[in-house]
């Protein structure tokens, strides 16, 4: 299973697409954080700049992860089916859950790499002051778990729906139903 995960990651690292997405991700977050920093630069005494910036960064990462993780995973099973690589794998001694876990593991390691790319930005927040190391660790752990959960949405869609274009739509629909839809339902139910 580990071998399958490693080979999946190896293929991903060799593709150009991965590096482009990673670069855009880092640039987008840098831009958002710089804008946030500029927006609050004039705020007076007593404003804790560091925690505000780090909180904003975590929110941006979460939002972008909702876009990136489904696209990384929603074609990984039906795509293999279309390319004819899945059946020969299913004919081996790998059990279906091993193939699934290998793909989930590869997606989670990829997510960890995306999160690692945000570390310089976190360092910036840290330098601005008042950010505790513990909160940084907890936030990163929660982000990683969230990314893994988002990956399962993409993988489920790609296992259930044969066509990659449709499975991507389904994965995004599920993610947005939960992130935007569930608060709306909650608010309506509260009336």
């Amino acid at each position: 299973m580990i071998d399958l995960m490693v080979s999946e990651l190896r293929q991903r690292l060799r593709g150009r697409r991965w590096w482009v997405v990673l670069g855009l991700w880092a640039l987008a977050l840098l831009g958002l954080l710089a804008l946030t920093r500029a927006a609050v630069s004039g705020v007076g005494e007593g404003f804790r700049l560091g925690p505000f910036m780090f909180g904003s960064l975590a929110l941006f990462v979460l939002a972008l992860a909702c876009l990136v993780m489904p696209s990384l995973t929603s074609g990984s099973i039906n795509g293999e089916r279309q390319r004819g690589t899945l059946a020969v794998l299913q004919a081996t001694l790998y059990r279906p859950w091993e193939i699934f876990l290998a793909k989930l593991g590869a997606a989670t390691v990829t997510a960890a790499a995306f999160l690692a790319a945000t570390l310089p930005l976190t360092l910036w927040c840290f330098v601005e002051g008042d950010v505790s190391v513990v909160s940084v660790l907890v936030v990163y752990l929660v982000l990683l778990v969230t990314c893994a959960v988002l990956a399962t949405f993409g993988l489920a869609a790609s296992a259930l729906i044969p066509r990659p274009a449709l499975s991507a739509v389904a994965a995004y629909a599920a993610v947005f139903a939960l992130t935007i839809g569930s608060p709306i339902v909650f608010a309506l139910a509260d009336e």
Binding site: D3, S7, Q11, R12, R83, G84, T85, V88, T92
Partner: peptide, 21 residues
């Protein structure tokens, strides 16, 4: 009809299936 993992080398591909078996 079958596909092969285009991003791997031939050696890596066979080693992967060695692991799969």
């Amino acid at each position: 009809f079958f596909g092969v993992y285009e991003g791997l080398t031939a050696q890596e591909y066979l080693e992967l299936f060695g692991a799969a078996y």
